[in-house]
Design a protein around this nucleic acid. Structure first.
Lengths: 243, 243
DNA sequence: ATATTCAGTCAACACTTGTGTACTGAAAGA
DNA sequence: TCTTTCAGTACACAAGTGTTGACTGAATAT
C-alpha cells in the first residue's frame, strides 16, 4: 500500500501466485496427514493425482504448462520437490499422464453424445449442449489439452495430436453408423471430423478465456460455435467424393 | 533513499532447457561491432530486431515463448542482459512487438491474395498456394502467432486474438467486394471467415510441426487443408440467413 | 568546443531452479 | 516376530533467473 514508492512496475507475466510464499522451506502439507485408509498403493495414487491436479490448478490462471516448474507443482501438491521423482521421471511425463486422463474423459463425452436419439435437425445443437456442459465440468483438462496442443513440449504435442486424431476417428465412425452424411467415404468423414474437432478445441479455448461469469459473452461464443458447425455440416452434405 | 525492501517475488519461468549451455559469461557479439553506418537510431533498431529475431530463433526448436528467459534472448542477440531494458520493459512487450510485426505481414498476404483475378473455381486452391508459400517465407512468425495464440501470456493472447479478428474482418470485406457468397450478411461472413482463419492457423501449426524435408507429408497436409476449406465454402454457399 | 544523451557494459543482489545423496518410519512381506 | 520395501523428507549444491545501480564512451545537441 503506502510502500509503493517505486515506479509502476508493469504487470509481469502470468505468474500471479497469490501466496506471498514467505516459506523458505518447501512446505509439506499433504505428505502423510490424517484422514482415510493409508495403504501404500492408494496413498501413492493420491499423491500422484495431487501432483497432476496441482499442475492443472497452476495453469488455471493463464499460464502455460511449459512455464511451470517442478518445484511449483510439488509445492502446490503439498509435497517436497524430490518426491516428484517417486511418481514421474520428468515434467513431460506428468504432462503425458494428463493427456491420457483427458483422452479418457473425452471418449466418455463421445459415448454420451452418441446415444442421442434426437431428430437430426437438433443433433448439432444437442451435441453442443453436451459439449458445453462438458467443458464446464472438465474445465481444466480441456484447458490443458487445447492450449498445450501447440505448446512447448514436442512430446506432449505429439501425444495430444494422437489423442485428437483418435477422437476424430471415433466420431467419423459414429457418423457413419448413424448414417448421417450417407455416401461419403471414410476418408472424407475423417477429414470433416478433423475440422470439427479443431473447431471444438478452438471454441473451447475462446470459451475458457472469458471469466466464468460473463454470461452474455458465453452466449455469443456458443452461438458462433453452433453456426460454424452448421456451416461445416452444410458443406458436408453437399460434398461429392470424386470417383 | 529508496528503502531496499523489494517485494519483487514474481519472476519465474521454466527453463527446461536441457542443453549444457557452456557459455559461462554473457557474450556480447553484436554490441557495437563492425559494419555499416552507426547512427544511434538505426543501431538501436538493429539491436531491437536482433532481440526479436533471437526470440523467434529460440522458439524454432519447439519451445514456447513463455518458457524463454530474458537472459537467453539477450544471449541469442549477442547483447548483455541489462541491455534488454533499453528496448522493452518486459518480455511481454517483446511478444507484443512480435505480434504486431506478424500482423503487418499477414495483412500483406491478404493484399496479395486479394488481387487474384483467377476463376472462382480456382480461387481456393490459388489462395492456399499463396498462403503455403507465405508460411514457408515467414515460418517463424507464423509459428509464433499460431502457438502463442493459446500460450502462456494473457496479454499476448489478447493481442493475437485482436489481430486475427482484424484479419478475419478484412477477409470478410474482401469476400463481400469480390461478391463471392452473395446474399450473406456481414455478420455471417465474419463468422465464416473466423472459421477459415482458425483452420488456416491450425493447418499452419500442423505444417510447421513437420520437418521441412518431409515432402510427402507436406503434400498430404496441404491436400487436407484445401479440402477443409472447400467444405467450409461449400457450406457457406448453402447458408441461408434467417430473416 | 563543450555539454548532454543514452545504448551497451559490468558487477552484484537475492532468489529460484533441477537434481543428487542420505535418512526416516510406517506399511507389506517373511 | 523380524526384515525389507519405498513414499516422503532433509539438506546441499551448482547453475540459472530478473533486476538494480553505477559506469563508459561515442553519437548528438548546443
Amino acid at each position: 500500500m503506502a510502500t509503493s514508492v517505486h515506479p509502476k512496475k508493469r504487470a509481469k507475466r502470468g505468474n500471479r501466485s497469490g501466496r506471498a510464499s514467505k516459506a523458505k522451506s518447501d512446505s509439506p502439507s499433504a505428505g502423510r496427514s490424517s484422514d482415510g485408509p493409508r495403504s501404500r498403493a492408494v496413498q501413492k495414487k493420491r499423491t500422484r493425482s495431487a501432483l497432476m491436479e496441482a499442475a492443472l490448478r497452476l495453469m488455471s490462471t493463464g499460464r502455460s504448462y511449459t512455464s511451470l516448474s517442478l518445484r511449483e507443482i510439488t509445492r502446490g501438491a503439498g509435497v517436497v520437490p524430490t518426491s516428484f521423482y517417486r511418481h514421474f521421471p520428468d515434467l513431460d511425463e506428468l504432462g503425458l499422464a494428463l493427456v491420457e486422463e483427458t483422452g479418457l474423459t473425452l471418449r466418455r463425452l463421445l459415448r454420451e453424445a452418441r446415444r442421442a436419439d434426437v431428430p437430426p435437425i437438433r443433433i448439432i445443437a444437442h451435441s453442443v449442449e453436451i459439449y458445453h456442459q462438458y467443458i464446464r465440468e472438465h474445465r481444466l483438462h480441456i484447458l490443458f489439452m487445447a492450449s498445450e496442443r501447440w505448446g512447448g513440449s514436442p512430446l506432449i504435442r505429439r501425444s495430444i495430436r494422437y489423442e485428437t486424431q483418435h477422437f476424430a476417428t471415433e466420431m467419423a465412425q459414429d457418423l457413419r453408423e448413424l448414417n448421417l452424411l450417407p455416401g461419403l467415404s471414410m476418408a472424407t468423414l475423417q477429414m470433416i471430423c478433423g475440422l470439427v474437432v479443431n473447431t471444438m478445441l478452438n471454441a473451447a479455448s475462446d470459451f475458457l478465456d472469458v471469466p466464468p461469469d460473463q454470461f452474455q459473452v458465453e452466449e455469443e461464443l456458443t452461438e458462433n460455435f453452433v453456426r460454424q458447425l452448421r456451416v461445416i455440416f452444410l458443406g458436408a452434405t453437399q460434398w461429392k467424393d470424386k470417383v
